[in-house]
Design a protein around this nucleic acid. Structure first.
Lengths: 181, 181, 181, 181
DNA sequence: CATGAATGAGCGTTCATTCAT
DNA sequence: GATGAATGAACGCTCATTCAT
């Protein structure tokens, strides 16, 4: 039995295929076959192929902004570690690959990636502020620490898998926290 | 006036175009036009289109492995900063864009990027070892610091431009050095 | 506020669109949108797209056959001029464009245009007969004059607008009348 | 044996097919088949389908401007008749149908048709001037006569065939000439 | 009767690759 | 080696038409 309505199945299939072979390398005919819909139906819901990608990015990469940060004053390393485990990106690993891979080709994807990056930095900084009540004296260093942690998280999501090198976010959190004490 | 022989002009044109619009979006006919060579000549030098990309990566992204590191004992921050200024990737900005953009689609590009990443980590670790003679007691932390710094450098090369957020490698070097003292 | 019932609105929309971009270039979906009816309803009233055009031609291009001709004996030029002002084609400018544009592609349209042409010639001849009681001696020349005048009228309807050249039907009437005296 | 080079065969096939079924109703695949070339070759010579039509119009509808008019002073009817037989349009009947049919859809075709129309009127007027040396007193009437004759010629080319009514250009020439005496 | 999702054949166009010259 | 015409598979997209509800 087929699961979900046609539009959802199209997006499911596209998500899987875009993450696998990439947007350009995925013909609409293959999306249709995997989604078990006729090819024309894709263009009923998404007038152009790129609109499938845009819809995926719009609907499946929500960056949550209001979520609480589980900060523990005096424990910046643990606070960052917990932040890393609750990445504010509601997206499957497939969607994350899509976000990075298509970012510099497609404007709407790039915009989403920029917002994600900014939110990550913002949250890392806020987490550190909460965990280091006395560190307010050096905001510049806090900013650098936050950006560095965000870099590691995004790097981990993508380049690590790409190149085979692993980074342990917990160890990085500990390193960064140490430098702020 | 036309510069260089035909093969070189083909690679020059491809480098510019691949960096601009991406590999997939660049037809061989456009490479030929920009290189001012007949279309058939490209396939004389490079039997398949992908071979143009492979040749670019092979010939224009040398990862230098043996270069001296300008380490100053007692100044890990300065040592890392200098390392950041001499990324061990001899490549134009165009080639760097290509390396990142095509990495997860084309194996040979991915392999190069992996080697670059590994070399960066190796050199960062070695630089820190030289600059922190007494820190040998905590090799694990050194490794994390090196990987973090490499992540920031590559992140900077790639995502920063993409998302508009800037990171100052010098400040990160100072942060990381501080955590190792 | 929507005017008319669904079938009328469909024909109104089709008339406007066929006259504007042509029959082939007008998708049924666009007709439906302009008519503010669901797409399927068009095919309820008109089983095939061509039936919309046929209905337009059948219902909106009445060629009046029995209308009185305002003939003044002894004034053939004035009689023809008055005929020109009352072309026996009750149709909007839009329908006239459709008649000419689609005539050689669609049989039913061609048939209408043929009837219009025949009626024009018939009426011009009859008008001249009434206005020139003594000219009965040269029926062949009368026939040529009538056909020529009809040609000018249709040419004016069609090619003049297309090519930018204007012809004054009154002057042509005067010319033709003069040749019959 | 195949006649002509590939580009010529493509144009030959397109001329025949556009004249027969119309531009829109002729798929490029059918042109290719009739021309006995692979479909892709059409787009090698003509980047877009419309360029095939434009090339036909540009290359096969030469309106000759400098040709001598075989005018006989005192014989305006004969002069017009001879003009009608040597229409200043070097184009096959197929090309003429194309010119009219596609004129209001495609700008470049419309421009050609306008030029043809203007040239026809100009030549008819000039022929009448030569054949009626004494008629210079009424230039306005001459202009109307020329435009009327051009209308008949073009009408004849197109509407007559369309509607089944025939007009004899010789008889019209005689009619018009008579009105100028 | 009314609806719009569903259908699929067919279109114009692209482009890596081949090959005769 | 150098050339560009030739090739054809594959793509994104359109659209008249159907049909279950």
């Amino acid at each position: 039995m087929v699961i979900g309505d046609a539009r959802t199945r199209i997006l499911d299939a596209a998500e899987e295929l875009f993450a696998g072979g990439g947007y350009d390398a995925t013909p609409t005919a293959v999306i249709a076959r995997l989604a078990m819909v006729p090819k024309g139906l894709i263009f009923h819901y998404f007038p152009r192929k790129i609109d499938v990608l845009v819809a995926l990015v719009d609907e499946r990469t929500l960056v949550e902004e209001g979520r609480d940060i589980d900060a523990v004053p005096g424990d910046p390393a643990g606070t960052l570690s917990r932040l890393a485990r609750g990445l504010p990106l509601r997206a499957s690993p497939a969607m994350r690959r899509i976000l990075f891979r298509e970012a510099d080709t497609h404007g709407s994807v790039k915009e989403r990636l920029g917002r994600l990056n900014g939110e990550l930095i913002r949250r890392a900084r806020f987490a550190l502020e909460l965990a280091l009540p006395g560190a307010r004296g050096d905001l510049a260093r806090l900013e650098v620490a936050a950006a560095t942690f965000a870099a590691v998280l995004l790097y981990q999501e993508n380049l690590c898998q790409l190149t085979g090198h692993q980074i342990d976010p917990d160890a990085v959190a500990e390193l960064i926290a140490h430098s702020l004490l």
